[in-house]
Amino acid sequence: MKHTKHYWRAGFLLVGGLIGFIFVRHFLVPTSFGQFGFYRGTNLAEQQAKSVVHGGKESCSTCHEDVAKNHAAGSHAVVQCENCHAALSKHINKDGEFVELMPIDRSPQLCLRCHRSLPSRPTGFPQIETKEHLGLDEPELQAGACLACHNSHRPSLEKKKVKYENNG
C-alpha cells in the first residue's frame, strides 16, 4: 500500500497507547478487587476493623454494679447509660484504661427529650407539660429541677428512697 506511512505511524501510536494503558492499569487495580464481587475485597475487613464506640449498659455494669442493679430494677432499665451520659469510648479507651469522667447532664432538657409532652409521641408514654407538672415554663426550669424528685436511674417516686441509699 502506497501513501499509507502516516496511517501506520498513527496506528502504532494508538496501539502503543492502548497497550501502555492496559499495562499501567494492571498495576493500578487493587489485588483484592473482584475477589467477592465488583469491589475491593479487603474493604470488608477495613470496615469491620473500625473501633466500637458504644459499649452498651452491659459494659457499664462491669464496674458500676450498684448503679446497674438499681437501674435495672426500675422503669429506666430500657434506657442505655450512654444515652444520657456519653459513649463508652469517651470514658474508657481501647485498652481498658480510664480516660475521663462521664459527663452528668442534670438539665431538665435532657429528661424532656423523652418526656416533653408532644402530640407525636405514643399516647401512654409518660409525658409532662412543665407548666402543669412544676408550674413553670420550660426555659424557667433550673438544672436539676427534675432530679429534685426523681432519680434518673430509677425514676418512679415510691422507690426514690431506696434509690438514694443505693446510689450514695
Binding site: Q48, G55, T62, L88, K94
Partner: peptide, 12 residues
C-alpha cells in the same frame, strides 16, 4: 462486651 469495645483485632 467491654472487650469488644477495646481490641481492634478483627482483621479478615
Amino acid at each position: 462486651m467491654i472487650l469488644n469495645v477495646l481490641p481492634i483485632k478483627i482483621p479478615n
